[in-house]
């Protein structure tokens, strides 16, 4: 109970400060609406406006790009991790593109995939796949040697060793990669929704609200996007805790 009360207290304090700033007129009311106004505008957009649809679009794009990223990143990471010499050869390229801001790749992806859904998903998947690949490869490379030898001695074929030992050994690290990957995918999707020919999505909604001076709604969409990111992160933390029950024991 206490574990819930303390963070709730922090959030309440944040809202109280915000309200105080509004009451003291520290900023122009057009730029800083009250929490209540923000809530009302957001609720209205949810029930009568497009916000629910926007949220749904952002979630689908993020999940879709995350799934594509997993489908590429996990097997490729396992393969590269199992053959360390190959990984060392491509490590620089992976690290380089992992460090490149995905937003800098928008123009390139626009040329490759055109103005449409494909580009948003491709660029987000690309960013997330590198993070997942990197983590999966390191998970495999840090696999306990004894366990690999034990499996071999027990008659496991090389392919068996990959699926029965390496995959499991890498699993904690793969889930860490997935958690970072899904967060990154959300970031890229929201930015892409702002700038790559979109008509919906949270990114689109926030930039439209800003340009129409609907600041209550703008703040609301920011909070919705924040809540989405937080929930995605929390989901993977809980998955890790539940599924990787052996970690650190």
């Amino acid at each position: 109970m206490r574990a819930l009360l303390v963070p709730a207290g922090g959030a309440a304090g944040f809202i109280a400060l915000w309200w105080l700033a509004v009451l003291l007129r520290l900023a122009d009311p057009v730029l800083l609406p009250s929490p209540l106004e923000t809530f009302n505008d957001t609720a209205k957009s949810f029930t009568q406006g497009p916000l629910l649809h926007d949220l749904w679009r952002t979630v689908t794009r993020t999940v879709l790009s995350f799934l594509v990223a997993c489908a590429i990143g996990v097997p490729l990471g396992l393969l590269l991790g199992a053959r360390e010499s190959i990984y060392r050869a491509v490590e620089f390229v992976v690290d380089f593109f992992r460090s490149t801001p995905a937003s800098a790749l928008f123009p390139l992806f626009l040329i490759l995939f055109g103005v449409g859904e494909g580009t948003k998903i491709a660029v987000a998947a690309f960013g997330a796949a590198l993070v997942i690949l990197f983590n999966a490869a390191y998970g495999v490379m840090n696999a306990r040697r004894t366990r690999l030898l034990a499996a071999r001695v027990m008659g496991a074929s090389p392919l068996r060793v990959v699926f029965d030992v390496m995959l499991w050994e890498a699993m904690p690290q793969i889930l860490v990669g997935m958690r970072s990957g899904v967060s990154l995918a959300l970031v890229i999707v929201v930015v892409a929704e702002m700038f790559i020919g979109s008509t919906d999505g949270l990114g689109q909604r926030v930039i439209v609200a800003q340009s129409l001076f609907e600041s209550g709604l703008m703040y609301g969409v920011i909070f919705v996007a924040g809540a989405l990111g937080y929930l995605l992160n929390l989901t993977f933390l809980l998955l890790e805790k539940r599924f990787i029950h052996w970690a650190g024991k």
Partner: peptide, 24 residues
């Protein structure tokens, strides 16, 4: 059969003890 010195790193912690024995 091979028994390693470090049982912590030789058993598969994601499988139950009986599943470890059934594996080979």
């Amino acid at each position: 059969g091979y028994v390693f010195q470090n049982y912590r790193e030789a058993l598969f912690p994601w499988r139950r003890a009986a599943e470890n024995i059934r594996y080979p």
